[in-house]
Amino acid sequence: MKEGVDKLGAVLEGLAKLPGDQCWGLARTDHQRHGIHAACQLEAGALIPAARLLLAEGFFLEDVSAADLSEGVLLSYHFDLYDACRRVVLRLLVPRERLTAPSLAGVYTGADWHEREIFDFFGVIFTEHPNLKPLLLPDDLDQRPLNKRPEERRSLYALLPQEQLVRSKP
C-alpha cells in the first residue's frame, strides 16, 4: 500500500512543478466520498506532460469522461494504479468557441477510442489523433447527442468542490 501512496505523492509533486499558468486547482480529494484521490485542472498545453508523468509512475488510463457545462466541455481523464487504488483525475476545460484538445493517444494508446467516443458525443476535435473517425454513432450524423441546451447547462463552480477550482498548491 505504501508504494501507492508514494506514487501518488510523486505525481502530485510533479504536477505542482508544471508552470503556474498551465496547472491550477491541484487538490487531494476525499476518496471515501468521491471515489477520487486527487484532481488537477490543466490547460491544454500541460495535458501531455502531465500524462507522461502518470505513465512514468505506472498509472493506467481508466477512462475519459466529458460533461457539457456552461463554461465549455469539461474533459475528465481518470487514471489509476494497478498495485493500490489511487485515482487521479486530470481535467481540461475546452471552450465552446474552439472545441479542440490535444490527443493522449500518443502517450496512452488506449485513449484512442475514449477520445473518438467524446468526438461522437460532444464534437470535441482531438488534434494529432491517429484515427479520428466516428466510433459509435453513424458517420453521417450531424448531431452531438450529449451536448445540452444552453438553459440546461450548469456551471463548473456549482458542480465541483471549490478546492479543485482555485489556483493553489496542495
Binding site: R33, H34, G35, I36, H78, R87, V89, L159, L160
Partner: peptide, 8 residues
C-alpha cells in the same frame, strides 16, 4: 447533492 463520484 451536487457533486461528482466515481465508483468501480
Amino acid at each position: 447533492p451536487a457533486g461528482e463520484v466515481y465508483y468501480a
